[in-house]
Simulated scan of single mutants.
Amino acid sequence: MKQIPLGRSDIMVSDWCLGTMTFGTHTSVADSGRQIDMCLDAGINCLDTAEMYPVNPVAAETVGQSEEAVGAWVAASGRRDEVMIATKISGPNGGFMRGGEGYHAGNIAQAVEDSLRRLNTDVIDLYQLHWPDRGSYMFRQNWSYDPSGQDRAATLDHMDAVLGAMQAQVDAGKVRAFGLSNESAWGTTRWADRAAAVGGPRVVSVQNEYSLLCRLYDTDMAEMAVNEDVTLLAFSPLAAGLLTGKYQNGAIPKGSRMDLAPQMGGRKTPRLFAAVQAYLDLAAAHGLDPVHMAMAWQATRPFPVSAIFGATTVAQLEHLLKGRDLVLDDAVVAEIDEIHRAHPMPY
């Protein structure tokens, strides 16, 4: 598995990353630990979680359970030094965390302590802001995004204060690196600029949705990533399971994400399934598994990417890992781009 630097830090991560948002509920604690071991044995050293996980749905009685499942593995495995653990503090849409107040300079220290306790570790390798305090166009909000109500001065003051609190956690040895999630090009660049101005930790990564079906990152964010040395942690590289083909022709497997969330977080649209079928047909024409093709495509991008995949079951993970060495040839990548032009942003 290829290793890439996490921004300008000294942390190296695999270009695949294990996501844990089902750990503790849909994925048992025992299977969660087994999945981590399987990934480490396959050369994947990156593990992503969040204080609000598990999801589908997020519930008051389950927040923190994914971190606890990771923590159970840390306590039992003796392999903590082999894995880069990333977690996130919830933004103002965090729901059940701190009454939904989000994050600010006054509550970051306690949130870090709570995550450290659940994770059974002394240090968080990458601590990420799960959602911009000012809002975001992610999760299909791009169709009606309106930033006109933002207060630039208040946003920059908030950034400065958060960076000061984050630097205190770095200085205390409790956090190694600082990252973002669901951010824009303007926001990510401002975080980098403000860190230089106030002496806070420089952003090393941004975790945004990115897949064959969701390519918002390809323009302004791509330029930012290259010029600012910010690594993309791409979530939903399989488009919430859509690119596996399991939902084609009206199929809704019992217990699947579409079964639990019928609109798939706004992904289910009239144009969706034709786009999925085009990628499935391409994979079949080249003798490729569509899951493996979608994951391998991430490594072809002209900016640094570590793709975060999730597997509810060990069997799903075993199938994913069979494609870890696949490299797409130029002809397949070119055909992918043709499909993208024919089916741009289907959700």
Rank of each mutant, 00 (worst) to 15 (best):
M1S: 11
Q3C: 01
L6E: 05
G7H: 04
R8H: 06
R8T: 11
D10M: 09
V13I: 15
D15C: 03
G19E: 00
F23A: 02
T25F: 03
T25L: 07
H26M: 08
T27P: 02
S28T: 14
V29R: 09
A30Q: 13
R34K: 12
Q35N: 03
L40G: 08
L40K: 07
G43W: 11
I44M: 10
C46L: 13
D48T: 07
A50V: 06
M52H: 03
Y53S: 03
N56I: 15
P57N: 07
A59M: 15
A60L: 14
T62I: 09
V63A: 07
Q65M: 15
Q65F: 12
G71R: 09
A72L: 10
A72C: 10
A75E: 15
A75G: 15
A76H: 05
D81I: 09
V83C: 13
A86Q: 02
I89M: 15
G91Q: 04
P92F: 04
N93D: 07
M97W: 14
G106K: 08
N107I: 09
A109Y: 03
V112N: 00
D114Y: 09
S115A: 12
N120D: 10
D122Q: 06
H130F: 08
Y137C: 03
Y137M: 12
M138D: 00
S148H: 08
Q150T: 09
D151Q: 11
L156G: 00
M159L: 14
A165Y: 08
M166V: 11
Q167F: 11
Q169Y: 01
Q169N: 01
A172V: 10
G173R: 08
G173H: 10
V175T: 00
A177K: 04
N182F: 00
N182A: 02
N182T: 00
E183Q: 00
G199R: 14
G199N: 13
R202K: 14
V204C: 15
V206E: 12
Q207R: 04
N208V: 07
Y210F: 15
S211M: 10
L212S: 03
L213Q: 07
L216W: 05
T219F: 13
M221G: 01
M221K: 00
E223W: 10
M224Q: 09
L233A: 02
A234T: 03
P237R: 03
P237L: 07
L238W: 01
A239N: 00
A240E: 06
A240P: 00
A240Q: 08
L242F: 10
G245W: 04
G245M: 05
K254S: 12
S256A: 13
S256R: 11
R257L: 15
R257Y: 08
R257M: 13
L260K: 14
P262S: 14
P262N: 12
K268P: 00
T269D: 02
L272R: 05
F273N: 05
F273K: 04
F273C: 06
Q277E: 15
Q277N: 12
Y279N: 10
D281M: 13
A283Y: 12
H286E: 14
H286L: 14
D289E: 12
V291M: 14
V291I: 15
H292R: 01
Q298S: 03
T300E: 11
V305M: 03
V305P: 03
I308V: 15
F309D: 03
V314K: 05
L317F: 02
E318D: 11
E318L: 04
H319V: 06
L321A: 02
K322F: 02
G323K: 05
R324C: 02
L326A: 04
L328S: 02
D330T: 09
I336N: 01
H340Y: 14
R341C: 07
P344V: 07
M345H: 08
